[in-house]
Design a protein around this nucleic acid. Structure first.
Length: 803
DNA sequence: CAGTGAGCGAGCTTCCGCTTGACTT
């Protein structure tokens, strides 16, 4: 039995360390925190100076008893959790829960996983830092108080099962406020003038030069006047300025920057990035993926340098030490980097390969030389006008890090092809081939995507690397926010063109405002946000986390007791909770849009039992109100009176077919046509308000055609087996259970009754799936999948249901 | 798969951070 037991947080780490330490050491993992505040109730004893009630998490019970057993057999126990606030608390919880003794317990920390670093740590043990532990307890208790006192208010005043918290509520606020900025935005137009000049270069060759006027015109008249001036103007090179420029590489990846780049370059969702990174980490290919540090170990710097030299030569090396600038960073780990810099790629799925290569390039590039550029600007004067055109070009003199990696930006709209300019002389005369004044509109602020929301949260110091992805899921699961697309709208713009001495004036059309996979606030999200910001402005303040972090630092420094800090907060916060619970109205987000011209009754929108609705009339009136649901893409905040009135025009009869009426309406699953008790979904491209009789018949016939082709063949005496065409290809059904056909590629027409029975026998699970797991079980399943905390309750429920 | 919108009110829901598992769609 080894004399020493080392406990770290992650099993992958444990495995590596065990190799370094040899036979005398056993290394185990705690899998993060082993205990937490009691899940039932608030888990804090307010009568007893905020005493936290800690409970070993159900999924950790077995682990804790194993750890306990291992400690009994060891002479010395080494607590080697991370060096930050949470890591210190993990060490303390282990100490408490495993009932360790001070004499044979050591607290150690190391910053990189190398033999030297670990041996050095073992030679320099210390005690558990109680102040740092207390800072974590304050953090934990504060979050519990905020979350568990605010959420019930929402259950009462808005809707059951909602949630609020220090992090998630602010994340939602960012999205709601951005949406308002967009709604209130009005595009301003101005005129941008560009020109194409020709000349002869120093070698006598004809060259072309594109240039842009430095000034923009606010009105069409001004642009027109300028073009008039240009009609008879002389153009000449006024000045040529060439200056050197530099570009430096970005620092290595943190969790947040990895999520952003993977979203931009690979199109990964935040959760996807983390899953793929986790697999790379577990396979030993990269360092830990939840980190806020941009620091690289000396080992990594050394191997990077060697790699760059062999790849590109010594002049491409530039070793850099990056420092973190994000708020509240705790830097318990290294930056995210390849474990071995000489591995340019890895084996694995294509996602793993692509993410790995991204990490490798970013890491290598961070240690490479700056790129050197030469920027040239040619200024062109216009006779009869003080204004100047400018043509700019950029030449890469030395590529440096650009050899391997170019960082993306969210708005790469200005990616003009800046290139080499022709050689010119001062005073040179130019001919203009055309000069165009084009109307340009200012851009709406962009909506957040998952990754850009993470970036903003990191900037505000809200949330941690381990919680970015879960928080993004939570606010979507609560239906505060949803991911969606906006199709482009057409917009007209004006183009004035001067060519061959003539000015033409044309209207052109452009697409604008298309967005993909962005975060939109829902009506519930907006109502909850407005309610919370009104009653709890302090919690919803963007600086709240930063402010409490300062207080946690004071606790960690020993300047204030954690219970005193919490008491200060609670004495302010709790009375507002009580007051809000008592005195605030129920929140339905009602907006009165105006009057229905047909009836003269009030038209309003609000959140109803089944979602947002429009309502004509009020309950106080004698005549009952009339209701209509809002459409999916509409919101209470932005719907207009006209749009709301349109909702009452459905259901609408669109004529007859085969002697039966056809009705168009919008249901739970979108617009549909109803005919002879059958439903036909309307394709997205059809507007339910516009569908004609002919078009409706067409849709019905199309669906019938698909239905007809659905059945490939029928087998069995009474046709109990049907071979069908489904969304995922052919399958067959027997007794209301669906079965796969294999091997893949089997021609469904060759299937016989015997073969089908064989296939049924080969997939007995298919039959079992349906019965014990009903709809509820399926729902519970997705629930637990969405939030990693598997709740035993959710699993127990369906089990109890089946008899 | 597709009509809902009054109110009785059982018992339930919820936070943030640290870490991975396991078993059917």
């Amino acid at each position: 039995m080894p004399k020493n037991l080392v406990i770290v947080e992650s099993p992958a780490k444990a495995k590596t360390i065990e190799k370094f330490l040899g036979k005398d050491y056993q290394v185990m993992s705690s899998f993060g925190h082993i205990r937490d505040l009691a899940e039932k109730g608030i888990g804090i004893d307010f009568e007893n100076n905020y005493e936290p009630q800690y409970v070993v998490s159900t999924d950790k019970k077995k682990l804790v008893s194993e750890l306990k057993k291992a400690t009994k057999d060891s002479e010395t126990i080494w607590l080697a959790s991370d060096e930050d606030r949470e890591g210190e608390a993990i060490a303390w919880h282990l100490y408490e829960e495993l009932k360790l003794k001070k004499e044979n317990t050591r607290r150690i920390v190391f910053h990189e996983i190398t033999k030297e670093a670990i041996l050095h740590a073992i030679e320099n043990p210390r005690d558990i830092d109680v102040n740092l532990v207390d800072a974590q307890q304050a953090r934990r208790v504060l979050d519990r108080i905020v979350g568990f006192e605010l959420s019930p208010i929402l259950w009462r005043k808005v809707r059951p099962s909602l949630s609020a918290g220090r992090v998630q509520s602010v994340a939602v606020r960012l999205i709601v406020e951005r949406e308002r900025e967009i709604n209130q935005f009005s595009a301003e137009a101005n005129y941008r003038v560009s020109a194409v000049f020709t000349s002869v270069d120093v070698n006598g060759k004809a060259v072309e030069l594109k240039a842009e006027l430095q000034q923009r015109f606010a009105t069409k008249a001004e642009a027109q006047a300028f073009l008039e001036t240009c009609k008879n103007a002389q153009f000449s090179v006024d000045n040529i300025i060439t200056k050197p420029a530099k570009k430096s590489p970005a620092p290595p990846f943190t969790t947040s920057t990895l999520q952003q780049e993977a979203a931009r370059k690979l199109g990964f969702s935040v959760a996807q990035t983390m899953q793929v990174a986790q697999r790379l980490y577990e396979a030993g290919k990269i360092t830990y993926m939840r980190t806020d540090s941009v620091n690289l170990s000396d080992l990594a710097l050394g191997t990077s340098k060697a790699e760059i030299i062999s790849m590109a030569g010594p002049k491409y090396v530039h070793i850099r030490k990056f420092t973190t600038k994000s708020k509240g960073a705790q830097e318990a780990h290294e930056a995210i980097r390849p474990s071995y810099m000489n591995a340019h790629t890895v084996e694995g799925t294509s996602q793993e390969k692509r993410l790995y290569e991204l990490i490798w390039k970013r890491t290598i590039a961070s240690q490479m030389a700056d790129a050197e550029l030469e920027k040239t600007s040619i200024y062109i004067s216009v006779s009869g006008s003080p204004l100047q055109f400018v043509s700019s070009g950029e030449v890469i003199v030395f590529d440096g890090f650009l050899k391997v990696y170019i960082e993306s930006t969210d708005d790469d709209t200005d990616a003009e092809n800046e290139s080499l300019l022709p050689a010119m002389k001062n005073g040179e005369k130019l001919q203009s081939t055309e000069i165009v004044a084009q109307e340009r509109f200012s851009q709406k602020p962009p909506r957040y995507g998952e990754a850009s929301l993470v970036r903003k949260m990191e900037e505000l110091g809200i949330g941690r690397p381990s919680t970015y992805a879960p928080t993004i899921s939570t606010i979507q699961n609560r239906l505060y926010v949803e991911k969606g697309d906006r199709t482009a709208e057409k917009r007209e713009y004006n183009v004035l063109k001067l060519k061959a001495g003539k000015i033409t004036d044309k209207i052109k059309e452009e697409n604008t405002g298309a967005e993909k996979s962005k975060l939109f606030p829902t009506d519930i999200g907006t109502v909850v946000n407005d309610f919370l910001t009104e009653y709890f402005p302090e919690i919803l303040n963007y600086n709240f986390t930063a402010d409490v972090e300062k207080e946690f630092d004071n606790i960690a420094d020993g300047d204030i007791k954690w219970t005193v800090a919490i008491d200060k907060f609670y004495k302010k916060f709790h009375p507002i909770v009580l007051d809000t619970m008592q005195n605030s109205e129920r929140q339905v987000g009602e907006r009165i849009l105006g009057v229905d011209p047909a009836s003269g009754r009030q038209l309003s929108v609000k959140i109803g039992k089944y979602g947002p609705l429009a309502q004509i009339g009020t309950v106080e009136e004698e005549e009952k109100p009339v209701f209509a649901s809002l459409r999916k893409e509409q919101s209470i905040e932005s719907i207009t009176l006209e749009e709301a009135l349109d909702l009452f025009k459905l259901p609408r009869q669109v004529g007859e077919f085969e002697g039966k009426v056809m009705t168009v309406a919008i249901g739970r699953f979108g617009p549909y046509i109803r005919h002879d008790a059958t439903f036909y979904s309307l394709p997205k491209t059809d507007d339910p308000m516009e569908v004609s009789t002919e078009r409706a018949i067409e849709i019905i016939e199309e669906k019938r055609e698909v239905e007809k082709n659905r059945i490939i063949q029928t087998l069995g005496e009474n046709g109990e087996i049907q071979v069908l065409n489904g969304r995922f290809g052919p399958y067959f059904t027997c007794d209301k259970v669906n079965y796969k056909i294999f091997p893949k590629g089997t021609d469904p027409l060759t299937l016989t009754l015997e073969r089908c029975l064989e296939l049924i026998a080969a997939q007995p699970e298919a039959a079992n799936k349906k019965k014990p797991f009903g709809r509820k079980a399926a729902a519970a399943k997705t629930e637990t999948k969405e939030k990693p905390k598997a709740k035993p309750k959710a699993k127990a429920k369906p089990a109890a249901k089946k008899k």
